[in-house]
């Protein structure tokens, strides 16, 4: 095969330069700073301090709260990604099948997309307010001694619920678009061949939706890891007992609130590596199984 080449040797570099500059300024430079900072212990004002090699990393893993945050982040992210994708897929399949008034359904289902995570958190706080919030009262009326201010499980439940609610609409948009891009001819052929709707979905629709699903999975993991910060900050601030503090929230608590620059930099480097590995795994093992 003949390789396509630009006539001018510098033109391609010139064309990608703006993008590279943005990556350099907004990612590579701060990331390099974080790596440098993570090897130092210094006072935040004068910048006096010492080079401590891996001491900051050692203290991070030595911190019992870090372990709690780590486990919580994994559980939280898994539940948020899986639940919001499942619910969104279900809604998308149902919305896709609707013939009458479909735009009304779609608008209502995508509505939440416009809500910022912090706003979702504030709404959640209101809904779960002790003695006043409608959801609080509903849960208590079922006989559950619901107490998210003191009980870690209950608190986790509220932040997960709000985070899922916020994300369903985003996933819904992608899934619906994915479903609608499946050619009508294929669907009709499937209908003739197979009577069971469930089997048709399982063998025809789902594989054809896989590229969309994979993309949605990647953005959901990133969402659960990073964007839920606003929900946590407005709802629980990591409480009770540090039980709802995600890794990102802990970086913020130690670095921004506590001014431990070295420790929080080490945490963010670990987090960066974790997400890179996670994304690489997704691409390596999941993407291979997908037919585009």
């Amino acid at each position: 095969m003949k390789r396509q080449q630009f006539q001018h040797p510098y033109l391609p570099y010139l064309l990608v330069a703006p993008q590279l500059a943005i990556i350099l300024v907004f990612f590579v430079w701060p990331a390099a700073q974080a790596v440098y900072q993570s090897f130092r212990l210094e006072d935040p004002l004068m910048g006096i301090g010492e080079f401590v090699w891996f001491d900051n990393y050692a203290s991070v893993f030595d911190d019992r709260q870090y372990v709690v945050s780590f486990v919580f982040t994994i559980v939280f992210s898994t539940l948020v990604a899986v639940s919001s994708m499942t619910i969104a897929l279900l809604l998308a399949v149902k919305a896709d099948g609707i013939l009458h008034g479909e735009s009304a359904y779609k608008v209502l289902l995508t509505w939440v997309y416009a809500v910022a995570p912090a706003v979702a958190g504030i709404v959640g706080t209101f809904l779960f307010t002790r003695n006043l919030g409608p959801l609080y009262n509903l849960l208590v009326s079922t006989g559950w001694t619901f107490n998210p201010q003191v009980n870690v499980f209950d608190a986790s439940f509220t932040v997960i619920l709000v985070s899922v609610w916020k994300q369903v609409s985003v996933n819904f948009i992608y899934f619906l678009a994915g479903l609608q891009s499946i050619p009508v001819a294929v669907r009709e052929a499937a209908k003739i061949d197979c009577k069971s709707e469930f089997r048709r979905f399982w063998t025809i629709t789902l594989p054809l939706l896989a590229p969309t699903g994979f993309f949605v999975l990647v953005i959901n993991v990133t969402y659960a890891f990073f964007d839920t910060f606003g929900v946590i900050d407005t709802m629980t601030r990591g409480a009770p007992a540090g039980g709802t503090s995600t890794l990102v929230y802990k970086v913020y608590q130690d670095g921004f609130l506590g001014l431990d620059l070295g420790g929080s930099s080490a945490q963010s480097v670990i987090l960066m590596i974790l997400v890179l590995v996670l994304t690489a795994v997704q691409f390596r093992f999941l993407e291979r199984k997908i037919q585009y």
Partner: peptide, 11 residues
Amino acid sequence: KLLERFAKTVN
């Protein structure tokens, strides 16, 4: 542990 780390930032 926190105090000990802080002490290292103060010279």
